[in-house]
C-alpha cells in the first residue's frame, strides 16, 4: 500500500505531515522522494545499511593528451559549456555534439555521478532516500529507484509513506505512478490553491482521486473556505483541517514528529486525519 504525500509548492508542511503519518502507522516503509531538499531523515537517528552511487546524466570529457586545441567543440556547443578546451560540468548537458564534431576523437561522454542513494534502518522500518550532488536534479529515474528499493523491504500489507517531490514535473509523476493513494497537503494561500488545482489534475490522470488536507487552515479562513469549496466541487475527500500550532515549529526544532506532543492541536488533527485516511485506503 503506497501513500504519496504531495504539495504543489514548497513549505506547506508536506514533510511534517508525512513524518507524522508514518509514526501513526505501526509497520511502515518511508521513501523520501523530495530529493532536492531531502529532509525526512533528519527526524531519525537511523543507520545506513546500504549505499549506492546514482548515475543519471552524462558529461563530456576532453582528453588533453589528444586534443589539438582546434576549438570546434567550443564552437558547436550550444550551452556555452566549453571554454579554453575544458568542459564545465555544471553547464554541460551531455548531448554529445562535441564528441561527434571532434576531428581527433578526443572527447567522450562519461556517466556523471548525480548523487548517493541510501537505505537507512529505523526502529520501525526502513527509509529509502538520496543525497544529490549540487546542480543535479531529481529525475523520474531516481524516484523509480528509491521506490524499488523500498519495495524490496515491504510486502503488500506494509504501508509505504512517500514524501513526494514538489511541483508537477517528471519526478512527481514517478512518485504517483503505481501508488494506491495520494494525499495533497495545501495551505490557505493564493499560491496554495493554484498549486492544489494542478496537482489534483495530475493525480486524476493516474486514476487516483487525491485526498486533500489544508495545513494551517486558520491563518486565512476566507482562503481556507475557498479551498474547501474547490475540494467539494471536485468531489474529493477533505480528510484534514490542521490548525496553525506553535508546537509544530518546536517539533521541527527538536526534530521530534509532532504526534509526540501532548496537547498539540495540530497533532490531534493529524491523528483524526489518520483515522479517516485509514478508513478510506484499507
Amino acid at each position: 500500500m503506497d501513500l504519496v504525500v504531495l504539495s504543489g509548492k514548497g513549505g506547506t508542511g508536506k514533510t511534517t505531515i508525512a513524518a507524522a503519518l508514518s509514526e501513526l502507522a505501526k509497520e511502515v516503509t518511508r521513501v523520501d522522494c523530495d530529493v532536492d531538499a531531502a529532509n525526512l531523515h533528519l527526524y531519525y537517528e537511523g543507520k545506513d545499511i546500504a549505499r549506492e552511487d546514482f548515475y543519471g546524466g552524462k558529461v563530456a570529457y576532453i582528453d588533453g593528451n589528444i586534443c589539438t586545441r582546434c576549438g570546434s567543440c567550443e564552437h558547436v556547443c550550444r550551452f556555452d559549456a566549453i571554454e579554453d578546451f575544458r568542459v564545465m560540468p555544471l553547464a554541460c548537458e551531455g548531448c554529445g555534439a562535441c564528441t561527434l564534431i571532434c576531428p581527433q576523437d578526443a572527447i567522450e561522454l562519461k556517466p556523471e555521478k548525480d548523487g548517493d542513494v541510501y537505505t537507512t534502518q529505523l526502529d520501525d522500518g526502513i527509509l529509502s532516500r538520496a543525497e544529490m550532488e549540487i546542480g543535479s536534479d531529481g529525475s523520474g529515474m531516481l524516484i523509480t529507484l528509491l521506490r524499488r528499493i523500498a519495495r524490496k523491504y515491504s510486502d503488500d500489507e506494509t504501508l509505504t509513506v512517500i514524501d513526494g517531490s514538489p511541483g508537477i514535473g517528471c519526478p512527481v509523476i514517478a512518485s504517483i505512478t503505481g501508488s494506491d493513494a495520494v494525499l495533497v497537503v495545501t495551505e490557505p494561500t493564493q499560491s496554495g490553491l493554484s498549486d492544489l488545482e494542478r496537482v489534483v489534475k495530475l493525480s486524476r490522470h493516474f486514476d487516483i482521486d487525491p485526498m486533500v488536507c489544508i495545513n494551517k487552515y486558520d491563518i486565512n479562513e476566507d482562503m481556507g473556505k475557498e479551498i474547501e469549496a474547490f475540494v467539494e466541487e471536485e468531489g474529493l475527500q477533505l480528510v484534514g483541517k490542521i490548525p496553525f500550532d506553535d508546537l509544530v515549529m518546536e517539533s521541527i526544532h527538536e526534530l521530534k514528529p509532532i504526534v509526540y506532543y501532548e496537547g498539540s492541536s495540530a497533532a490531534k488533527a493529524i491523528k483524526d486525519m489518520w483515522l479517516t485516511i485509514k478508513s478510506l485506503i484499507f
Binding site: 514548497g10 532536492d36 531538499a37 549540487i134
Partner: peptide
C-alpha cells in the same frame, strides 16, 4: 528557483 538544481546553477552564472 528553489533548491540546488541546474535551474539554480544557470541563474547563478
Amino acid at each position: 528557483p528553489p533548491g540546488t538544481s541546474c535551474n539554480v546553477v544557470t541563474s547563478l552564472r
